[in-house]
């Protein structure tokens, strides 16, 4: 049974031909919250998004959204959720209000109720004075707002977003995350978004890191970082493998080689840095020490840099 979770996924598998896109993925999302699916492109995020949005049938396993099975009852799921796509799904030749109107009618809204809902959403997203403008004339940030306004028109309790910050400048990205936080706090809406941006993932309540179709880590961003513990030292040098071995022996730790650089997860990195430089004079080109970031979490669980694994 799915209980009271907004989203409940169990053993979900999907394949494109021989390629496994989702490999026994399981997790739940509490309501209301902001849940992020973080991963490099090709990691399986969009496949999962499509299954939750009822656009793709999984090969096996189950997925419940709002307590309803996406496979056996897609029509009921569609009514419960709002969906925001990576690429705009508005018609540029129609005005902002016409787009909202059309969308509302697809969801069965009409007459006075449709008018009120459109006005509410325009007001909420600061679009009232642009209602008559054609969408093609709006900036990328405003267009995203139209997408959001549209997806919330029928009052869904769950919003599913695929890379919602695609094409937005940093300022617009921040205000998008603010909107999602407001939706959670004011309206009790659960947001599930896919992202490949580490800074965006940092603003989620919980995260699942998806790599090669598997959930490789799940938890709050803080808990994921704390799981690594202490600090992360990154060393750039000419002979990473050789230096790594000697460093490991000298300091009784393990130094991983990631993309030609050395990476050490240690308890008190700031104290080790001067020692390391003195122990191996001339061999270290640069050395940095910092608290773990989500990038470190990704390297920790996959052994690869986040961006190097990005290619499909």
């Amino acid at each position: 049974m799915s209980g009271q979770h907004a989203v409940d996924i169990a053993d979900l598998v999907h394949r494109y031909g021989d390629r496994v896109a989702l490999d026994r993925v399981s997790f739940t999302v509490e309501a209301p919250s902001i849940f992020g699916l973080l991963g490099p492109n090709g990691g399986g995020k969009t496949t999962l998004f499509k299954i939750l949005a009822t656009l793709l049938r999984p090969a096996s396993g189950s997925a419940h959204v709002g307590g309803v099975d996406v496979v056996s009852n897609p029509a009921a799921v569609r009514s419960k959720i709002g969906v925001v796509f990576q690429n705009p799904s508005v018609d540029g030749k129609l005005s902002v209000l016409e787009n909202l109107h059309h969308h509302g009618m697809l969801y069965g809204l009409s007459g006075a109720l449709l008018k009120v809902r459109c006005a509410q959403q325009l007001d909420r997203f600061g679009l009232s004075d642009r209602a008559g403008d054609r969408v093609e004339a709006l900036s990328g940030g405003l267009r995203r707002r139209v997408e959001l306004a549209k997806s919330l028109l029928h009052g869904p309790s769950i919003l599913i977003l695929d890379e919602p910050s695609t094409g937005l400048d940093p300022g617009a990205r921040i205000s998008l995350m603010d909107e999602l936080h407001q939706l959670r706090d004011r309206d009790g809406v659960t947001c599930l978004l896919t992202t490949h941006l580490l800074e965006e993932a940092d603003h989620c309540d919980r995260l699942a890191i998806l790599d090669h179709g598997k959930v490789v880590a799940i938890g709050t961003p803080d808990a994921l970082k704390q799981a690594i513990g202490g600090e992360v030292i990154t060393v750039r040098c000419a002979d990473a493998a050789g230096l790594g071995e000697r460093l490991g022996a000298r300091f009784k730790t393990t130094a991983e080689v990631v993309d030609g650089t050395l990476r050490l997860e240690v308890a008190n990195g700031h104290a080790m840095v001067p020692e390391m430089i003195e122990a191996f004079p001339g061999e270290i080109d640069s050395i940095t020490v910092g608290r773990p970031t989500l990038e470190d979490v990704f390297v920790h669980v996959t052994g690869r840099r986040f961006w190097s694994g990005g290619a499909e």
């Binding site: 009618m105 069965g108 109720l113 029928h154 009052g155 869904p156 309790s157 009790g188």
Partner: peptide, 20 residues
């Protein structure tokens, strides 16, 4: 607007077709 005010969504065939 709160999610509690969300209406029962009953998509009407003719409205969807007409809008498209």
């Amino acid at each position: 607007m709160s999610s509690a005010s969300s209406v029962e969504v009953r998509p009407a065939w003719t409205m969807a077709a007409w809008s498209l």
